[in-house]
Design a binder for these strands. Structure first.
Length: 1092
RNA sequence: GGGCGGUUAGCUCAGCUGGUUAGAGCACACGCCUGAUAAGCGUGAGGUCCCCGGUUCGAGUCCGGGAUCGCCCA
């Protein structure tokens, strides 16, 4: 006996992790990824950019999130016929690497590294960046992300660096790069620039001085606005004698560097008389607190607005500083328009009166906002200290800045300028490795003048589709609107060296745009030069008799990553044309610019998203990407950030091993909107697996189980038109599903597509399969059977394709088993197949509406059953149903048999509107009536409640208007202005909802009772078959004893029992074989089963 | 201090341009079904829609203020 070959491979219990390993092996062995890269792409290129991660850390859960989204759209577009270059990339330069290596080497003050040490340092950095590359490669493949890691771009490669130089050179040639000061946090003594992250942990509560200093105003420079306002308030300045602006600071050591006093333009200021210090100007809000602090009464003479005082000059607290700093010419000097160069009142929005006097002392060298203000007013910079924090001026010269406060305060006091000196407790950052307070200090720095391109940055942003949309004009838009110049230099070692060579006398800067150019300048071939420090620093050259040396700084790593559209192809231009020998690179770049799609987490708005956007706008005046998904962060179950120190990190690989990557991916896509924060937990992954994948698997395994028995001919499937209505309904649903998933993915809405798939699979399982089970077994009607198999097969195949971008593994498993065995010419992989096209002609909207009503009414009827307390096995005589629309009622009538069978009732009766049996709730159709009658609504509602609902129902049904008596007037309501809901009839177990109704007639007679008992017995025997481990097709012999109604039931329904349980015989005798029994208040029965 | 976003059932999340009784899944309890069966389905309980004020016939939804959490910037 030859066992017939199975049509499909048998499907057992799902083991997703194992299945995924098998699929990965299949992809690998058959080069499926390569084939997807090489398959015809009639629709052209869909451009995706990989935002480069750093490979020095371990891949974590949030990388699964990002990589899931980075994978789904390329997979989708590929199936649609686009080509996608999935070039990987690695971000390799920068601070995190340096800090890690520093820790390893125990290096602290980088200033002190000599050339040899730099060589060792950068060598170590280079090693470190790929410390975990193997883990990354494995992880990426395992989660099902298709990415070309072999040809990934690497930001430290010479080719990459050279392209970055080339970009910088083009910016340089257009005058976009300048040198200027930038305030940076320094660790003094070692004068090392720190990053925000490095100082974030160093904040401490400390006591600092809080001093109020008088800056005597020069009355001859009093602005007109001040004069006029004071006179209006009866105050003559000249009569007052000396008037001073009262300036507050917590850093007395910066007072020698003072160049301005800042007031808030909109704030109210008061001119007061102080018994101890003459006339003072300070914020109105600050008067009361200061009175308390200084314990004296301040008499308010007049009020001024901050804006009135702009340009009012004062005598600085340390006038001699300008002499010391050789800035004498600046002091007292005037601009062409007659305004002072410094030592005047300026306006600044950042001034507040919460602490202090509402007048800020401005020493622009020591604060970023202050430097910004100095730029706006064009004031010079006074460096009261050097970059090691040592005072260069005043009597405190030579002291460490923090130690100068005391002496300076005493000096001020001696000269009568100090009004009040106290202390304030606040948070201030310290460098945790040296213990020194941080010094904010203006250092020369290289800038890209992005602020000149604010308008273009904004306009190009308008062309970008942001998901979620609020980022566009919110976080990102605001950032562009308030754009400041991009400081691109860093005093570091491990980075792209800035390609600026400066003449020894500082008279000229040459920006080098290629190695070729550098070779020409240096007069030797540098093709093999490592472009990193320290080697590149050793390249010097002489031009016009001057020696040129490279500036010591390296490039901000964000510039590296923002340069990837160009540098990943080693783009090299001269002017706008490719450099000789780089024509191919140019073509590659052209084909891949700009990106159609990128995706990263929200913290990249000011990171990669910005650097991509800024470079593309400055050089090409167009966006670098057209669509961007901006992901929310992944946090733990309690909403806390996952971090190693908290021990709440969920590792991805164990999740893959336990539930499968598909389950994790599905969770990422569907758990919440992509832009929202996600609370991650294992429980939720499990839910994703059971909810969607589990249900899909069940249907699939059901199909395969019976298809292997019936061997339907799936190559020649019956025409849809001749299939039963149930099948045509499912076909219509499938077409609708294709439309919905396609539309969602076109809109970059993975979640929407996922939800549609989830809903469909649920309906497929719990309605279509549930209702049609019997058509898949012992179905003698060949056409009906073939139609059922064809319909379910088509549905499963389509679902496999539609979910391929989401859950690539399970989709592949279905495809291989369901399609490849049936259609030899089918695509080798689901991912090489063509995205399904919906056929609108197959979408029978009427049928969908009708079936919708059926499903709904069945739900209500089940609920009514549950309430009646009569279990479904017991048949009931009658079910009354209705629905709000005529079309739906027709549907209920049409599918009455389905409903009857599902609910186990003998008869289903559809009630028409206005039928005697029904009463109604009459409701105003608010969206219509609200607009029309507004305030009269409460009266309308009251009037409706009074009226006979059945009469109204008849009128509405006949299309007549309904007259309504309101206290003031009579109004006529059209039928569409009213909503009718059927109410449960008396004496029925009923449920109703929004016009849908199901009412069960609860009446059992003897015949029905026996039939119910018969079903109980069938169930008992079926369970016994299961216990015996019989196959669904095995035949049995039955023997039994029974008493009471059970005996009667068997006598009446014996043939049915035999039929249902595949029993060849049924004999009343002492049970033999496998024994089961049942006994309750009705009676008892015992059965014996023997395999035939 | 500023900007952006969140706050809805025990948990994770939906709720479109304001509209009648605020939903789903999970978990829990109870029940049903049984030829997909260590699966499936239903029902139930569970809500001051963060708070206060305003607009409106009507506010989870719009406006103002506040609280709180997260992210970014200073």
């Amino acid at each position: 006996m030859v066992e017939e070959k199975k049509l499909f491979q048998e499907v057992g219990e799902p083991n997703f992790p194992k299945l995924e390993e098998a699929v990965l092996a299949f992809w690998r062995e058959n080069n499926i990824f390569t084939k997807s890269d090489q398959k015809p792409a009639p629709k052209g290129e869909f451009v995706f950019y990989e935002g480069p991660p750093t490979a020095n850390g371990q891949p974590a859960m949030h990388h699964v999130l990002a990589r899931s989204f980075k994978d789904i759209f390329p997979r989708y577009k590929s199936m649609q016929g686009y080509h996608i270059t999935r070039k990987g990339g690695w971000d390799t330069h920068g601070l995190p690497v340096e800090i890690a290596v520093e820790k390893k080497l125990g290096v602290l003050g980088r200033k002190s590294l000599n050339q040899e040490e730099i060589a060792e340092f950068t060598r170590q950095c280079r090693e470190w960046v790929f410390a975990n590359i193997e883990d990354w490669n494995y992880f990426t493949e395992r989660m099902g992300m298709w990415l070309d890691l072999e040809n990934a771009y690497v930001t430290y490669h010479n080719s990459y660096i050279e392209s970055v130089w080339n970009l910088l050179k083009r910016m340089w040639d257009r005058g976009m790069i300048v040198q200027d000061y930038k305030v940076v946090p320094l660790s003094p003594r070692i004068s090392t620039t720190l990053s925000q992250n490095e100082i974030a942990d160093g904040y401490r509560e400390v006591d600092d001085p809080s001093v109020y200093v008088r800056f005597p105003l020069k009355l001859e420079t009093t602005p007109m606005a001040v004069r006029e306002k004071l006179e209006a308030q009866g105050v003559r300045l000249e009569a007052l004698g000396e008037v001073a602006i009262l300036v507050w600071t917590t850093t007395p050591w910066t007072l020698p560097s003072n160049t301005m006093a800042a007031v808030h333009p909109e704030m109210e200021y008061a001119l007061v008389r102080s018994p101890s210090a003459g006339h003072l100007i300070l914020a109105r809000e600050a008067v009361a607190p200061l009175q308390a602090l200084h314990k004296e009464d301040l008499e308010v003479l007049a009020h001024l607005k901050g804006a009135d005082m702009e340009w009012w000059e004062y005598t600085p607290p340390f006038p001699e500083v300008c002499v010391e700093l050789e800035a004498v010419e600046a002091q007292g000097q005037r601009r062409p328009d007659g305004r002072p160069v410094m030592h005047f009142i300026a306006l600044a929005d950042f001034v507040s009166a919460e602490d202090g006097s509402g007048v800020a002392h401005e020493a622009p060298v020591y604060g970023a906002e202050d430097l910004e203000l100095a730029r706006r007013y064009g004031t010079p910079l006074l460096f009261g200290t050097d970059e090691y924090g040592i005072m260069r001026v005043s009597k405190e010269r030579g002291k460490f800045f923090k130690e100068a406060d005391k002496g300076l305060i005493q000096d001020l006091k001696a000269r009568g300028l100090l009004y009040h000196a106290g202390q304030i407790r606040h948070r201030y950052p310290f460098h945790d490795r040296t213990g020194d307070p941080i010094l904010y200090f203006a250092k020369p720095s290289w800038y890209v003048k992005t602020s000149n391109y604010r308008a273009q940055l904004w306009e190009n942003n308008e062309k970008i589709n942001w998901v979620p949309p609020h980022i566009k004009h919110g976080r990102f838009g605001n950032w562009l609107k308030d754009n400041v110049d991009w400081a691109i230099s860093r005093e570091r070692y491990w980075g792209t060296p800035l390609p600026f060579w400066v003449a020894e006398d500082g008279s000229e800067v040459i920006c080098v745009g290629s190695v070729r150019e550098l070779s020409a300048l240096a007069g030797r071939d540098l093709s093999d030069l490592d472009l990193h420090r320290p080697y590149v620093d050793e390249v010097t050259f002489v031009k016009d008799g001057k020696t040129f040396r490279r500036v010591p700084e390296v490039l901000d790593v964000w510039f590296d990553s923002g340069a990837m559209p160009y540098a990943q192809w080693h783009l090299m231009l001269e002017g706008e044309k490719p450099m000789e020998g780089y024509e191919e690179n140019y073509a590659l770049w052209q084909r891949h610019f700009p990106a159609d799609f990128i995706c990263e987490a929200i913290d990249q708005t000011r990171g990669w998203f910005y650097s991509l956007h800024a470079i593309a706008t400055l050089l090409y005046n167009q966006p670098a990407f057209k669509n961007v998904i901006c992901l929310g962060h992944l946090v733990d179950e309690k909403g806390f950030k996952m971090s190693k120190s908290k021990g709440n990190v969920v590792e991805p690989l164990p999740m893959f091993d336990k539930y499968g990557a598909d389950a994790v991916r599905w969770y990422m896509f569907t758990a919440s909107e992509p832009g929202e924060q996600k609370r991650f937990s294992e429980r939720l992954v499990q839910e994703a697996q059971r909810g969607f994948l589990g249900t899909l698997w069940n249907v699939y395994s059901f199909f395969v189980l019976y298809a292997n028995l019936d061997r339907p001919n799936l190559n020649q499937r019956p025409e849809v038109a001749i299939r039963p209505e149930m099948d045509r309904w499912l076909v219509a649903r499938v077409q609708q599903l294709i439309q919905k998933v396609t539309a969602a993915l076109d809109a970059y809405d993975a979640r929407g597509g996922g939800k549609e798939l989830e809903r469909f699979v649920d309906e497929l399982s719990n309605w279509y399969v549930r209702r049609n089970r019997r058509r898949f077994w012992k179905n003698e009607d060949a056409l009906d059977r073939e139609a059922a198999y064809a319909t379910l097969w088509e549905a499963l195949v389509t679902v496999a394709q539609l979910c391929a971008p989401f859950t690539p593994f399970v989709a592949e498993a279905l495809w291989q088993n369901l399609v490849r065995s049936v259609e030899p010419k089918a695509a080798e992989s689901v991912h090489l197949s063509d995205w399904p096209q919906a056929n609108p002609a197959l979408i029978d909207h009427g049928l969908l509406t009708q079936m919708g009503a059926v499903v709904r009414v069945v739900g209500l009827a089940r609920s009514a059953r549950a309430k009646s307390g009569i279990k479904t096995r017991m048949p009931l005589p009658r079910l009354l149903v209705t629905a709000p629309s005529e079309e739906e009622r027709v549907g209920l009538q049409h599918f009455a048999n389905e409903i009857a069978e599902e609910l186990n009732v003998k008869q289903v009766e559809v009630l028409a509107l206005g039928e005697e049996l029904l009463t109604y709730r009459v409701l105003p159709n608010l969206p219509i009536l609200g607009k029309k009658y507004g305030k009269q609504l409460p009266a309308i509602r009251a009037a409706l409640a009074q009226m006979d609902s059945r009469a109204i129902a008849r009128a509405v049904r006949a299309g007549q208007t309904v007259a309504l008596e309101l206290p003031e007037q009579t109004i006529h309501l059209a039928p569409e202005e009213l909503l009718l809901e059927a109410l449960s009839p008396e004496g029925y177990a009923a449920e109703e909802e929004e016009g849908y109704l199901a009412a069960l007639e609860v009446r059992l007679d003897e015949a029905l009772r026996l039939e119910g008992l018969c079903r109980d017995l069938i169930r008992l025997i079926q369970q016994a078959r299961k216990e015996m481990g019989l196959k669904v097709s095995d035949r049995i012999h039955l023997t039994y004893t029974a008493e009471g109604p059970y005996a009667l039931a068997i006598a009446q329904h014996g043939p049915r029992i035999q039929e249902e349980t595949l029993a060849l015989s049924l004999r009343a005798q002492e049970p033999q074989g496998h024994l089961v029994e049942l006994s309750d208040e009705e009676g008892a029965a015992r059965f014996g089963l023997q395999k035939a």
